[in-house]
Design a protein around this nucleic acid. Sequence first.
DNA 1: ATAGGGTTAG
Length: 562
Amino acid sequence: MYAKTGFINDANRIFEEIPEKNIVVYNTMITGLLRCRFIVEAEQLFDNMPEKDSISWTTIITGLTQNGLFKEAVDKFKEMGIEGFCMDQFTFGSVLTACGGFLALDEGKQIHAYIIRTDYQDNIFVGSALLDMYCKCRNVKYAEAVFRKMRHKNVISWTAMLVGYGQNGYSEEAVRIFCDMQRNEIHPDDFTLGSVISSCANLASLEEGAQFHGQALASGLICFVTVSNALITLYGKCGSLEHAHQLFHEMKIRDEVSWTALVSGYAQFGKANETISLFETMLAHGIVPDGVTFVGVLSACSRAGLVEKGYHYFECMVKEHRITPIPDHYTCMIDLLSRAGRLEEAKNFINQMPFSPDAIGWATLLSSCRLNGNLEIGKWAAESLHKLEPQNPASYILLSSIYAAKGKWDDVAKLRKGMREMGVKKEPGHSWIKYKNKVHIFSADDRSSPFSDQIYAKLESLYLKMIEEGYVPDMSFVLHDVEKSEKIKMLNHHSEKLAIAFGLLFIPDGLQIRVVKNLRVCGDCHNATKYISRITQREILVRDAVRFHLFKDGVCSCGDFW
DNA sequence: ATAGGGTTAG
């Protein structure tokens, strides 16, 4: 009892007083030590036991896993096998979790083979752990195979698969399997619902998400703070700050994640002052911010160009809150400085960092160089990114767009050739819009939609009106050396423009047109959309890869700073 | 005495 409840000193005293200790007493003590994170002591006791059984071994493997010592757990598992101890569902469950913890796919596969030999593959615990391991190792195909073969499934196995889809970027599949699960009359619990809402958030699927909100209310699962937190995130990611705010106020219990979710929602929308004042309110309520909260605050500062405030909160995070910055925080700072055009300062900042930026950090710097037309630092960023991730198209694409904007077509061609030789492919830009429960997805110059004729005609007529109003196409966003008229056509057929035209045609007047894009919105499209919002008197909300743009009567909520 | 699934971010 003492061991379990964390009174480890009392437990230790009683343990010492027991004259003849049997194996159960040892095992219990080891469990207690591990729960209290006394790992060295637990291992010592384990090593000095007069006699061990399978449970002793499983206990130590589980404890190591739960303390994040995945490699050590797997090593102990191997030792256990060599010593000839019998393994059961508990052992397999723990060691598979450990494999997932440090992405040890090969070891996971070997253990899978062993599980089949020992006839444990039909065990529901082992099956769930297996498919979770494959998902964590980013092998969704194997996970699906395990899932299909499982004869018995419960809410945990279904949730593990759903989460696996979501975490590997297959958000649509996550939503699909959620529906499947309900058809199989498995009732979702708080984990399942929270997770499917989070997938909806990644799809920016407001309608679907709102239905899950309804389901949360009807089932009572809304009471779980995690479910409500997922909903706040959803509303934030869909740009519905009013809904996020309303739900936040309705919640009876809030934790630091609830506050952080709302802070991040405001930050994504670019409402820097609101983000900061919400953060200050959070502090005033005695809520302790964590590293994620600061990502929200810092990114709000960078989106609004509040360089001094950004410095201030970075200092505040390190000195007052004693949070060690991780690469994400450094990326925010790189973004803060470089986007504001202070590229030399960004360079100095990077050189003073305790470690080199990660790929996202370099890509951030590179994209600011593109914005500011800085070739010198841009080259440095592109080369560094290329060294880290040779297959990442961003190093080629962004650098070549700097060259293209300067008319240096020879260099553009060189990069293109390099890309081909390396087998690097540009991530295709897609924009999508939801209409009548169906997602309509567009890529540049796409004619696959049954409504293409109408869409292109709409764009053509809009283009003429835009020109009348003073719109000038910005050719620097065309990465090809072609005739001017061809460039204009290419610009006018960008995926976001196609999706917006679709919205203008089909979304009823008075409703917001909501478009999502997988990459950052293009500068010319941004400008054009401002004109379109004024000409048509429609509200257009575009969520790109990093933030929201709300276009209304010729103005964008980002204030053209992005 | 031992086990399997989530929520916040660039």
